[in-house]
Amino acid sequence: KEWNEKELQKLHCAFASLPKHKPGFWSEVAAAVGSRSPEECQRKYMENP
């Protein structure tokens, strides 16, 4: 399903605030978004950083 504005906001906010070198980075991003898997978050971010 399409990403909504709130999900995208959470994605970018989590990406900006979490340490990128940490193992499980995308899992933490997904936990912050709440409604998406780590894979979905990574794919979406890579599509549209």
Rank of each mutant, 00 (worst) to 15 (best):
residue 12 H to D: 11
residue 1 K to A: 01
residue 23 P to E: 15
residue 43 R to C: 08
residue 10 K to W: 03
residue 4 N to F: 03
residue 27 S to T: 13
residue 18 L to F: 08
residue 44 K to T: 06
residue 28 E to Q: 08
residue 44 K to S: 04
residue 18 L to V: 13
residue 29 V to D: 00
residue 22 K to S: 08
residue 33 V to H: 01
residue 11 L to I: 02
residue 2 E to S: 07
residue 10 K to Q: 09
residue 40 E to S: 06
residue 25 F to P: 03
residue 48 N to P: 15
residue 22 K to Q: 12
residue 22 K to V: 07
residue 48 N to T: 15
residue 7 E to A: 01
residue 28 E to G: 08
residue 25 F to H: 04
residue 4 N to T: 12
residue 15 F to G: 08
residue 18 L to K: 09
residue 31 A to S: 12
residue 37 S to F: 08
residue 39 E to A: 13
residue 26 W to Q: 03
residue 9 Q to T: 10
residue 41 C to P: 01
residue 19 P to Q: 14
residue 13 C to I: 15
residue 6 K to L: 08
residue 12 H to A: 14
residue 33 V to D: 02
residue 10 K to E: 11
residue 25 F to K: 04
residue 45 Y to I: 15
residue 47 E to W: 04
residue 4 N to Q: 04
residue 34 G to H: 06
residue 35 S to Q: 13
residue 6 K to G: 12
residue 29 V to R: 01
residue 42 Q to S: 08
residue 29 V to F: 00
residue 30 A to L: 00
residue 38 P to L: 07
residue 6 K to C: 08
residue 34 G to S: 08
residue 29 V to E: 01
residue 10 K to D: 11
residue 21 H to S: 14
residue 42 Q to C: 12
residue 42 Q to H: 06
residue 36 R to N: 04
residue 40 E to F: 00
residue 27 S to D: 14
residue 29 V to H: 02
residue 44 K to Q: 12
residue 30 A to R: 00
residue 43 R to S: 13
residue 14 A to N: 06
residue 38 P to R: 08
residue 34 G to T: 04
residue 46 M to A: 13
residue 5 E to M: 12
residue 25 F to D: 10
residue 17 S to F: 10
residue 46 M to V: 10
residue 47 E to D: 14
residue 7 E to W: 00
residue 34 G to F: 03
residue 6 K to P: 05
residue 24 G to K: 14
residue 29 V to Q: 02
residue 24 G to Q: 12
residue 49 P to G: 05
residue 19 P to A: 12
residue 39 E to F: 06
residue 42 Q to I: 08
residue 46 M to N: 13
residue 25 F to R: 03
residue 45 Y to R: 06
residue 46 M to L: 10
residue 12 H to Y: 10
residue 46 M to C: 10
residue 7 E to H: 00
residue 3 W to E: 04
residue 39 E to R: 06
residue 21 H to T: 14
residue 45 Y to C: 14
residue 14 A to Q: 05
residue 27 S to Q: 14
residue 24 G to R: 12
residue 11 L to W: 07
residue 19 P to K: 13
residue 11 L to P: 01
residue 14 A to P: 00
residue 5 E to C: 12
residue 16 A to M: 10
residue 13 C to W: 11
residue 33 V to C: 05
residue 15 F to V: 15
residue 1 K to I: 08
residue 18 L to M: 10
residue 13 C to L: 12
residue 7 E to G: 00
residue 6 K to H: 01
residue 15 F to C: 14
residue 9 Q to N: 07
residue 36 R to W: 06
residue 33 V to M: 05
residue 20 K to H: 08
residue 48 N to H: 11
residue 21 H to L: 12
residue 11 L to M: 07
residue 12 H to K: 07
residue 16 A to P: 02
residue 25 F to V: 07
residue 12 H to V: 06
residue 45 Y to W: 12
residue 20 K to C: 05
residue 37 S to D: 08
residue 33 V to Q: 02
residue 19 P to M: 05
residue 17 S to L: 04
residue 8 L to V: 04
residue 46 M to I: 07
residue 30 A to N: 01
residue 36 R to L: 01
residue 29 V to L: 04
residue 2 E to W: 00
residue 36 R to D: 02
residue 49 P to R: 15
residue 11 L to Y: 03
residue 33 V to F: 00
residue 43 R to M: 11
residue 47 E to N: 11
residue 17 S to I: 06
residue 4 N to L: 04
residue 30 A to K: 02
residue 6 K to R: 11
residue 20 K to M: 12
residue 1 K to G: 04
residue 2 E to D: 15
residue 12 H to F: 10
residue 40 E to D: 15
residue 20 K to A: 07
residue 41 C to L: 01
residue 49 P to Y: 02
residue 30 A to S: 12
residue 40 E to W: 00
residue 11 L to C: 02
residue 40 E to P: 00
residue 11 L to D: 01
residue 6 K to N: 13
residue 44 K to P: 01
residue 44 K to N: 03
residue 25 F to W: 05
residue 46 M to F: 15
residue 21 H to D: 15
residue 37 S to N: 05
residue 44 K to C: 08
residue 28 E to P: 00
residue 4 N to R: 04
residue 27 S to C: 10
residue 10 K to N: 06
residue 27 S to V: 12
residue 31 A to Q: 13
residue 37 S to L: 08
residue 26 W to P: 03
residue 17 S to N: 14
residue 2 E to M: 10
residue 39 E to M: 10
residue 21 H to Y: 11
residue 45 Y to A: 15
residue 3 W to K: 03
residue 23 P to M: 06
residue 13 C to P: 01
residue 36 R to F: 12
residue 3 W to H: 02
residue 43 R to K: 15
residue 10 K to Y: 04
residue 48 N to G: 12
residue 41 C to Q: 00
residue 39 E to G: 11
residue 21 H to P: 09
residue 7 E to N: 02
residue 29 V to G: 01
residue 43 R to W: 06
residue 22 K to E: 11
residue 21 H to N: 12
residue 12 H to P: 01
residue 18 L to D: 06
residue 13 C to Q: 15
residue 46 M to K: 12
residue 19 P to S: 11
residue 7 E to I: 00
residue 23 P to F: 06
residue 18 L to Y: 08
residue 47 E to Q: 03
residue 13 C to Y: 13
residue 21 H to G: 14
residue 20 K to S: 07
residue 13 C to F: 11
residue 34 G to M: 03
residue 1 K to V: 05
residue 36 R to I: 02
residue 29 V to M: 03
residue 43 R to Y: 12
residue 12 H to Q: 14
residue 26 W to M: 03
residue 22 K to I: 05
residue 45 Y to H: 15
residue 20 K to V: 06
residue 32 A to H: 12
residue 28 E to W: 06
residue 39 E to Y: 10
residue 14 A to R: 02
residue 25 F to Y: 12
residue 40 E to T: 00
residue 33 V to W: 00
residue 39 E to T: 14
residue 26 W to N: 03
residue 9 Q to F: 07
residue 7 E to V: 00
residue 35 S to A: 12
residue 6 K to V: 10
residue 19 P to R: 09
residue 27 S to W: 08
residue 18 L to H: 07
residue 20 K to G: 11
residue 32 A to T: 11
residue 29 V to I: 12
residue 34 G to D: 07
residue 34 G to L: 02
residue 18 L to W: 04
residue 13 C to K: 13
residue 19 P to W: 04
residue 21 H to Q: 08
residue 28 E to Y: 06
residue 29 V to P: 01
residue 20 K to F: 03
residue 49 P to M: 02
residue 22 K to C: 10
residue 20 K to Y: 05
residue 38 P to V: 10
residue 35 S to L: 05
residue 6 K to F: 07
residue 9 Q to S: 09
residue 1 K to Y: 06
residue 17 S to A: 13
residue 17 S to C: 05
residue 8 L to F: 03
residue 35 S to W: 04
residue 47 E to T: 09
residue 40 E to M: 03
residue 16 A to G: 11
residue 13 C to R: 15
residue 22 K to F: 05
residue 3 W to R: 02
residue 27 S to K: 15
residue 49 P to D: 03
residue 45 Y to M: 14
residue 41 C to T: 02
residue 17 S to Q: 09
residue 27 S to G: 12
residue 5 E to G: 05
residue 33 V to I: 07
residue 21 H to I: 14
residue 5 E to V: 09
residue 25 F to M: 06
residue 18 L to E: 06
residue 12 H to T: 09
residue 22 K to N: 15
residue 9 Q to A: 13
residue 10 K to C: 11
residue 28 E to D: 12
residue 34 G to W: 01
residue 15 F to K: 07
residue 22 K to Y: 05
residue 34 G to I: 02
residue 48 N to M: 09
residue 47 E to R: 07
residue 8 L to M: 11
residue 41 C to I: 01
residue 27 S to Y: 05
residue 24 G to T: 14
residue 32 A to C: 10
residue 31 A to M: 14
residue 23 P to G: 07
residue 33 V to S: 02
residue 36 R to K: 14
residue 39 E to I: 10
residue 16 A to Q: 08
residue 44 K to W: 10
residue 45 Y to N: 05
residue 24 G to S: 13
residue 34 G to N: 03
residue 43 R to L: 11
residue 3 W to S: 03
residue 42 Q to L: 04
residue 33 V to Y: 00
residue 11 L to G: 01
residue 3 W to C: 00
residue 9 Q to G: 06
residue 16 A to R: 10
residue 19 P to H: 13
residue 38 P to C: 06
residue 21 H to W: 09
residue 16 A to E: 13
residue 27 S to M: 09
residue 45 Y to E: 07
residue 4 N to D: 08
residue 43 R to H: 15
residue 7 E to D: 07
residue 37 S to G: 12
residue 32 A to E: 15
residue 5 E to H: 05
residue 6 K to Y: 05
residue 47 E to C: 05
residue 42 Q to A: 07
residue 26 W to H: 01
residue 1 K to L: 01
residue 38 P to W: 06
residue 10 K to T: 14
residue 3 W to L: 02
residue 11 L to T: 01
residue 30 A to G: 06
residue 5 E to A: 07
residue 5 E to I: 11
residue 11 L to E: 02
residue 46 M to Y: 09
residue 5 E to Y: 11
residue 11 L to Q: 00
residue 33 V to P: 01
residue 21 H to E: 15
residue 41 C to R: 00
residue 4 N to G: 04
residue 47 E to K: 08
residue 45 Y to F: 13
residue 36 R to M: 04
residue 15 F to W: 10
residue 48 N to C: 14
residue 24 G to Y: 07
residue 28 E to T: 09
residue 42 Q to V: 03
residue 41 C to A: 03
residue 40 E to I: 00
residue 22 K to P: 08
residue 14 A to G: 04
residue 2 E to T: 07
residue 1 K to Q: 04
residue 15 F to D: 07
residue 18 L to N: 10
residue 12 H to E: 12
residue 4 N to P: 01
residue 30 A to I: 00
residue 29 V to S: 02
residue 30 A to E: 01
residue 11 L to F: 03
residue 31 A to C: 05
residue 28 E to I: 07
residue 37 S to M: 05
residue 45 Y to S: 14
residue 36 R to A: 06
residue 14 A to V: 09
residue 18 L to Q: 10
residue 32 A to V: 13
residue 35 S to I: 05
residue 16 A to I: 07
residue 32 A to I: 13
residue 48 N to W: 06
residue 34 G to R: 08
residue 6 K to E: 09
residue 13 C to T: 15
residue 10 K to P: 00
residue 19 P to T: 06
residue 37 S to I: 03
residue 38 P to T: 08
residue 14 A to M: 12
residue 20 K to D: 08
residue 48 N to R: 11
residue 4 N to K: 10
residue 26 W to C: 03
residue 13 C to M: 15
residue 37 S to W: 00
residue 21 H to R: 13
residue 3 W to Q: 02
residue 30 A to M: 00
residue 12 H to S: 08
residue 38 P to E: 13
residue 43 R to N: 15
residue 48 N to D: 15
residue 19 P to F: 02
residue 7 E to T: 01
residue 48 N to Y: 09
residue 18 L to I: 08
residue 14 A to K: 05
residue 40 E to K: 14
residue 20 K to R: 13
residue 19 P to N: 09
residue 32 A to M: 15
residue 25 F to C: 04
residue 17 S to K: 08
residue 31 A to E: 14
residue 27 S to F: 13
residue 26 W to Y: 02
residue 16 A to K: 14
residue 27 S to L: 11
residue 16 A to N: 12
residue 44 K to V: 11
residue 39 E to N: 06
residue 2 E to C: 05
residue 47 E to S: 10
residue 32 A to W: 11
residue 23 P to Q: 14
residue 31 A to N: 06
residue 23 P to N: 14
residue 2 E to Y: 14
residue 31 A to R: 13
residue 30 A to D: 02
residue 36 R to C: 05
residue 7 E to R: 00
residue 30 A to F: 00
residue 11 L to K: 01
residue 22 K to T: 10
residue 40 E to Y: 00
residue 41 C to G: 01
residue 32 A to Q: 13
residue 45 Y to K: 05
residue 6 K to S: 14
residue 35 S to C: 11
residue 16 A to C: 05
residue 43 R to G: 11
residue 30 A to Q: 02
residue 6 K to W: 06
residue 49 P to C: 13
residue 42 Q to G: 02
residue 10 K to V: 09
residue 7 E to C: 00
residue 24 G to W: 04
residue 15 F to R: 06
residue 19 P to Y: 06
residue 14 A to E: 03
residue 1 K to N: 15
residue 31 A to V: 09
residue 23 P to H: 13
residue 36 R to E: 02
residue 20 K to W: 04
